[in-house]
Amino acid sequence: MYNTTVAWITFRALFGRRRALLFALPALILIVLTLGLKSASGTVADWPAIVLGQVGAGAVVPLTALLIGTSVLGSEIDDNSVLHLLATPVPRRAVVMAKTSVATAVTFLFAAVPVLIAGVIAQGGLHSLAVGCFLGSALGAVVYSCLFVMISAAVRHPVIYALAYVALWEELISNLVSGAKYLSIEQWSLGVAHAVSKNTNLNAHLTITPSLVLAVIAVVVLLTYATRRLSAFTVRAD
């Protein structure tokens, strides 16, 4: 089910590329923004909820997950080094599980933890808003990682499709079409954050129960489909 050697190679590969320098960039922007708003506190009412919800859970988490999730498998597929991994008897499910778990852990570290840090900075301590957004971001780290690993297994040029999901679906369509919120990972994250913090400025459209149920269903479906697609991995013609 899980292969530690695959996870170790994935981790080494993730931080062996220059792209790794970008992983911390969204979190850095979040922290700098929080510090800036904190020093000018009072200019915008309830800014912590907006920063932690809209910027943290809504932008930093998906962008970081996109960079990491498409790197753990997509980059190896792009340069064909994945052949060395797949030319072994390791079940494809174990490959997907290992890669997704590494992506989730690194996204958690580079996105969810910074959201918590930003929350502590914003509110001058550990309050329910910071904890709620942290838990929501942690949920987002899991589901986004599953989604972007699945996209990497399913299509060439996964970054384009991943960006389309984040920019078009989450930021545009789910704000315009009411039913689309049920298929928005951002809304699932905000649903958890709102349940913990009860802060209405988070702009959460879902409660915690549908958020968690849909997230669990999404994880199962995405991992299953990623495994199916990786099992049918084909080498491109030259």
Partner: peptide
């Protein structure tokens, strides 16, 4: 079965 692919892509950081 053992496979040696043609392409030069390996885990070069190892």
């Amino acid at each position: 079965v053992g496979l040696v692919p043609e392409r030069d892509s390996v885990y070069a950081f190892l």
